[in-house]
């Protein structure tokens, strides 16, 4: 079942166009990786889907509903979770307050149950529940960000560079959790990642963007086999 479909999307910021004709499809229980060199428009694509960038043309369908013109907070209510590359948690608030905000659209009587489910999925977050976020390590912050997505029971989670600036061991734990989002919770996942090797390893399908234009779209396994693309654009030998 297709959760997200992006058709011929041209997007950017203000009058500046960054993305030219991107196409994407994400099913339930699937990880789609978006890879490409710096400045290729990967993050812009996520922001456009989340409603935080300007869309010049093209369509974004979520569960078959056109949400191209829908406001960002309403997209979130439709079941879309977006974890930005930086500032994906509220540093001045406690972890619990962050989780309360993540469950902002959830009825109050359901919240505690959802919180418990999220903490079971991410036990490390339970240990830091009452701490201020600014006092957490990079890995703990990412775990909190993922918990914030999980608590909302979204149908699609979009993660922008979740392993950025993390130690390899911590990054591996984050990638494990992303796989669990797909396998245990059955979610659709869109992953933008600089670590292209790992992203292609855990994803089912991949989109390669170069200078805002799609160069490859298909199974990740096939992209890994395309040495010409992988070596030139992703630096993965």
């Amino acid at each position: 079942m297709v959760v997200l479909r992006v058709k011929d999307l041209v997007a950017g910021y203000g009058n500046l166009r960054v993305l030219f004709g991107a196409n994407l499809e994400v099913r339930r229980r699937e990880i789609v990786a978006i890879v490409g060199p710096n400045g290729s428009g990967k993050s812009t694509l996520l922001k456009a889907i989340a409603g935080l960038a300007t869309v010049f043309s093209g369509r974004i369908l979520f569960d078959g509903v056109d949400m191209t013109a829908v406001k960002p907070h309403e997209r979130a209510r439709m079941g879309l979770a977006y974890l930005p590359q930086t500032d994906n948690v509220f540093s001045r608030l406690t972890v619990r307050e962050n989780l309360i905000l993540a469950g902002y659209t959830i009825p109050k009587d359901e919240f505690e149950e959802r919180l418990e489910e999220a903490l079971e999925f991410l036990p490390r977050v339970r240990a830091v529940l009452h701490r201020k976020v600014w006092a957490l390590s990079g890995g703990e912050r990412q775990m909190v960000a993922i918990a914030m997505a999980v608590i909302r029971k979204p149908r699609l989670v979009m993660l922008d560079e979740p392993s950025a600036s993390l130690a390899p061991k911590v990054a591996a734990q984050i990638f494990d959790k992303i796989v669990e989002l797909r396998d245990e919770l059955g979610l659709g996942v869109v992953l933008v990642e600089q670590n292209a090797r790992k992203a292609l390893e855990i994803s089912d399908r991949a989109l390669l963007l170069v200078a805002g234009r799609p160069v490859f779209w298909g199974p990740s396994r096939k992209l890994r086999e395309r040495e010409d693309l992988v070596e030139v654009y992703l630096g993965v030998a």
Partner: peptide, 17 residues
């Protein structure tokens, strides 16, 4: 709490609904 959050990071607050 939402007000404090929207003041700190409006885009993230928006993306949370």
């Amino acid at each position: 709490t939402a007000m404090r959050a929207a003041i700190e990071n409006p885009s993230l607050a928006s993306s949370l609904g």
